[in-house]
Computed example of a mutant assay.
Amino acid sequence: MAISLIDTFRVLASFDPPRGSLRGAPWEAYVDWAIAQGLAPLASYNLEYRLAGGADAPEWARDRLLSIYSGSVNDNVMKLVNFKRCVDELEGRQLLIMGGAAFADTLYPHVGFRPVLEISMLLRRMDVDAFAGYLAQHQFRPEPDEPAHGAVKVVSDGRTPIFLYADVLGAERRTEVQGIFERAKPMKMYGPSIFRPDLEDAVLLVCLEQAREGYQMPWLSYLDLRELMTGATSMGSVYSRPVNVAVLLERAKAWRLERALYTSLSILARLFPSMAESLKPALPPLRRATRELLERLVVIPASEPGKMSHVRGSERLRRLLTGQ
């Protein structure tokens, strides 16, 4: 029996994959796509250790995914240990780690499941230059190209790019950004100056990133969002608690991210139908016309593997989603 690409994704992206054969899965399409989406390490672990007989996957597919898994483990350890050495003794600051580096040890049962390609950090604007200078003492130099993804600066040691962000909600909402710092939780493993966003803030920051990328980013981001919205039940971490939906909705309104939250959660519900009902209370109450527009232009195409592409007026849509 033929198995679709999306069904293959759902099985191999699970922390508790259902038993069964994937013999009829579209392996030729899935392997390259999963590698590009950052999904290969978790998929490989499931095939090698969770699913009997590798779920009948072809040997070449298992070998290729396994090589990515092994590389992800080593690469993550190298990057995060090196970063720890750089910042462990830094005192008197409050610097927030966002994204993969904040999630690998809190949302995923193994740090190798969540590839960390870069380290994203949220700083107060007055700390950006000072921290960039501090990192320069550890061989991190400014990247020659214009900073991408909304970052103020990007520095790299040739192996690990570090994206430095400030005023992520826009200069007019600095009070809301200050709230992110006030609610942040310490990351003691990285020393006294390193923190990570609280749960509801982390959810909205993921939605903000997805919206700014026009929902054309690796699907690994949806696994991050899935685990945040389910309270990281596989872990016992700072994110292992139910999302406070009332707080999430209130904050989304204050941040002007209601459209982005609606879009991201709607995509998540399509990718993982078992979550759809539990996500409904967290969907902001948008106007019907707005919902239909977002569904047609973003939610439906972004929920199909390889189907999302920039639509006409996508820059205007991005501004609409991010409240800018």
Score class of each variant (00 low, 15 high):
residue 3 I to L: 15
residue 4 S to A: 11
residue 5 L to I: 15
residue 11 V to H: 12
residue 13 A to D: 13
residue 13 A to K: 03
residue 15 F to N: 14
residue 17 P to A: 11
residue 22 L to Y: 11
residue 25 A to D: 12
residue 26 P to M: 10
residue 28 E to R: 09
residue 28 E to D: 14
residue 29 A to D: 15
residue 29 A to M: 09
residue 30 Y to Q: 08
residue 40 A to P: 11
residue 44 S to T: 11
residue 50 R to N: 10
residue 50 R to Q: 15
residue 54 G to E: 10
residue 61 A to N: 06
residue 63 D to C: 01
residue 63 D to G: 04
residue 63 D to F: 01
residue 67 S to T: 06
residue 68 I to F: 08
residue 73 V to N: 02
residue 77 V to I: 14
residue 79 K to P: 03
residue 80 L to P: 02
residue 81 V to L: 13
residue 81 V to F: 09
residue 82 N to Y: 04
residue 82 N to P: 00
residue 87 V to Y: 07
residue 88 D to F: 14
residue 90 L to Y: 06
residue 90 L to K: 05
residue 90 L to C: 07
residue 97 I to D: 03
residue 101 A to P: 06
residue 108 Y to A: 04
residue 110 H to N: 13
residue 114 R to T: 07
residue 120 S to Q: 09
residue 124 R to F: 12
residue 125 R to K: 14
residue 129 D to S: 15
residue 133 G to I: 08
residue 133 G to N: 12
residue 138 H to C: 06
residue 142 P to V: 08
residue 147 P to Y: 00
residue 147 P to D: 04
residue 153 K to T: 03
residue 153 K to L: 13
residue 153 K to D: 07
residue 154 V to N: 02
residue 154 V to H: 02
residue 160 T to M: 15
residue 161 P to D: 12
residue 164 L to Q: 09
residue 166 A to E: 10
residue 170 G to Q: 08
residue 172 E to K: 15
residue 173 R to N: 09
residue 176 E to L: 13
residue 178 Q to S: 10
residue 185 K to A: 07
residue 186 P to E: 05
residue 193 S to R: 11
residue 194 I to V: 15
residue 195 F to K: 02
residue 195 F to A: 06
residue 198 D to G: 07
residue 199 L to T: 02
residue 201 D to P: 06
residue 201 D to L: 00
residue 205 L to M: 13
residue 206 V to C: 03
residue 208 L to C: 00
residue 209 E to N: 15
residue 210 Q to T: 04
residue 214 G to P: 11
residue 214 G to Y: 08
residue 216 Q to M: 14
residue 216 Q to P: 01
residue 219 W to M: 06
residue 229 M to P: 00
residue 233 T to K: 05
residue 233 T to G: 00
residue 235 M to R: 05
residue 238 V to M: 00
residue 239 Y to E: 00
residue 240 S to R: 00
residue 241 R to L: 01
residue 242 P to C: 00
residue 246 A to L: 05
residue 246 A to D: 11
residue 248 L to N: 01
residue 249 L to H: 06
residue 249 L to S: 03
residue 260 A to M: 09
residue 264 S to T: 12
residue 268 L to S: 11
residue 268 L to M: 13
residue 270 R to H: 14
residue 271 L to N: 09
residue 272 F to V: 11
residue 272 F to S: 03
residue 274 S to V: 13
residue 286 L to M: 06
residue 289 A to C: 01
residue 290 T to L: 07
residue 300 I to C: 06
residue 301 P to V: 04
residue 306 G to W: 03
residue 310 H to A: 13
residue 312 R to C: 05
residue 317 L to W: 01
residue 318 R to W: 06
